[in-house]
Computed example of a mutant assay.
Amino acid sequence: MARRKLVYEGKAKILYEGTEPGTLVQYFKDDATAFNAQKKEIIDGKGVLNNRLSEFFMMGLARIGVPTHFIRRLNMREQLIRQVEIIPLEVIVRNFAAGTMAKRLGMEEGTPLPRPIVEFSYKDDSLGDPLVPEEYIIAFGWASQQDLDDIIALALRVNDFMAGVMHGVGIKLIDFKIEVGRVWDNDFMRLIVADEISPDSCRLWDIESGRKLDKDVFRQDLGDLADAYTEVAKRLGVLPSNATHMPKPTLIN
């Protein structure tokens, strides 16, 4: 079998050249990292869970008309995605104060915000992904004002969908981050949701108990990360309700 061409390897995923023009294969690793990879661990089954959960969210967004890079799942760890030009920004949507926002503003974690707040950080691990204002983004040519308006509208649509889905299974969507990419259809450029949407990129708290069901479990040593992700998958129907975490979990096709 021919060796696949590696395009990019990040902390949690590997991108390979796709078999169809304009596509990539996105492979989900079991690596867990925090604090710009200062803390690392292999969590058996994490990549499988994130692959299926990201598929679930991307397909849900497509059903409500939000464009994404997702084409189809290939197997337990891989999905075929559309190749895009990634805008070098993390787009963060916050519904409650948590993480760096709570620290910056001296707010108690879990404080409801008056409205969803969209922030941007510059994608550069060596700099710690610093927050950047819109003026920087426009001045350095990362995106135009129209792009930013469209990105914010896109992010808020994702937020509405995600918050509703999570609330329906007893989970509070504290915040999340997405990446956005450019694609061209002839001379027409569109912005679409890229990368992934999973517990790696969201803060998810149980509504009743406040238990954390996201990567903060790993960051803060709160228990077994795979068990937390398995709980999210079970509530959403991605895993059967009687499933328990296994190194290679059996998932619904």
Rank of each mutant, 00 (worst) to 15 (best):
I87R: 01
D147N: 14
T33I: 02
S54Q: 03
E231I: 01
P114H: 05
L61K: 05
F161E: 11
K13Q: 07
A97M: 07
F140P: 06
Q38G: 08
L204W: 00
I178M: 15
G170E: 08
L49C: 05
D129P: 04
V91F: 00
D224I: 12
R52V: 12
G99R: 00
D44C: 10
S201D: 11
L154I: 06
R72Y: 14
R77V: 12
K234T: 05
L222M: 06
V232G: 01
G99V: 00
L131G: 09
P112Y: 06
L236K: 00
G10H: 01
M1P: 10
N75T: 10
G170N: 03
R63T: 14
R4H: 13
L251K: 08
S241I: 10
P240H: 12
E41L: 09
D124I: 06
R157Y: 12
W205Q: 01
N253Y: 15
W142C: 13
L49K: 03
G170L: 05
S54L: 02
A233G: 10
E109Q: 07
K177I: 04
H245I: 02
Q83N: 11
I152Q: 14
Q145V: 14
D214G: 02
V180E: 04
G45N: 02
D149W: 13
V48Y: 11
D185P: 08
L15K: 05
G170K: 04
Q38F: 07
W142R: 11
V118M: 09
E9H: 07
I43A: 04
P116F: 00
F120L: 05
A34K: 00
D124R: 11
A37C: 08
A12T: 15
V25M: 03
I252F: 10
D195S: 03
Q146W: 12
V183F: 09
P21K: 13
R219Q: 00
